[in-house]
């Protein structure tokens, strides 16, 4: 098929879609012309007008069906049936507000629930953690059903044995999650998540804190005085923003009711952490 004839066919198709009424009127006029010519022919041969008309209609055939057949050749039949269905559905919905509301609510709840579920699955299972080579991170815990069905808390002695004897782990950090009350400045306290961890955590995650305090890798349990606060904690609280202006942090905060001071540190943006000692 040449480009020219393809273009012509396309033009016909588009015309029957966008100028439907015009094309319909053309078809009608065309068939009316045929009908009228048949009538004239009959009258010309001496038949009375009423009989002529009835004969002509008989000769031409079922006009509605023929038009339907002609429409089918224009294409878009399925599309037009679909549009008709849509219009019919819209009318039905408008007539039955109760049903419409129920259907809409069902849809909204269904979509909302699946979206929420997907967001959860996406963030927990699908999206990689924001650490370098997060696919290589594994969590290890001890389960001794004789003692308790729950996983045991981190055991420094065992962790040390794991670290020395494991050939597949390049680093190991002990981590325990918890929660505590935090009050910034003179604000009311609120519950924040905490992580008790060995200092090797930052080596394992390859994500050093913004201010790298010298953690003592030996005897860290005894020292137990290092606290890191996420820069995010202070973001959006009017005390820290990620602008170029020098940030101002409140000079103290309370952790589990105990006041702690905050040394002068730059404000952290993104996921990095600021640290301080007390």
């Amino acid at each position: 098929m040449s480009i020219q004839s393809k273009f012509k066919t396309l033009r016909l198709r588009l015309r029957s879609l966008f100028q439907r009424n015009r094309v319909e009127a053309d078809l009608d006029e065309e068939m009316q012309f045929h009908l009228q010519s048949l009538i004239d022919e009959q009258i010309g041969s001496g038949v009375d007008p009423a009989t002529a008309r009835s004969n002509a209609v008989k000769a031409l055939g079922n006009m509605t069906l023929l038009k339907e057949d002609a429409r089918e050749t224009w294409g878009w039949t399925r599309f037009n049936i679909f549009l008709q269905d849509v219009r019919y559905a819209a009318r039905t919905l408008r007539k039955n507000p109760g049903f419409t509301l129920t259907a809409l609510l069902t849809l909204a709840l269904g979509i909302g629930a699946s979206t929420a579920m997907f967001s959860l699955v996406d963030s927990v299972l699908l999206r990689p953690l924001s650490y370098r080579e997060s696919g290589r991170l594994v969590a290890v815990w001890e389960l001794i059903p004789l003692i308790t069905p729950e996983p045991l808390g981190p055991n420094p002695r065992h962790a040390d044995i794991f670290r020395r004897q494991s050939a597949s782990l390049s680093g190991l950090a002990m981590v325990q999650q918890g929660a505590t009350g935090l009050a910034i400045g003179s604000n009311h306290p609120h519950l924040v998540g905490t992580v008790w961890a060995s200092p090797t955590l930052f080596e394992v995650l390859e994500n050093p804190p913004l201010i790298n305090l010298r953690f003592v890798s030996e005897g860290y349990l005894e020292s137990s005085g290092h606290r890191l606060v996420s820069g995010r904690l202070f973001e959006g609280r009017g005390s820290c923003s990620c602008s170029s202006s020098p940030p101002s942090l409140p000079d103290f905060y309370r952790l589990a009711g105990l006041p702690r001071s905050i040394p002068s540190i730059p404000c952290a943006c993104s996921n990095q952490s600021t640290s301080n000692t007390s």
């Binding site: 045929h34 000769a59 031409l60 055939g61 079922n62 006009m63 023929l66 002609a70 050749t73």
Partner: peptide
């Protein structure tokens, strides 16, 4: 039916 021409023509 003479009208059958029209679907064919179209």
């Amino acid at each position: 039916s003479e009208g059958s021409l029209y679907p064919a023509l179209h």
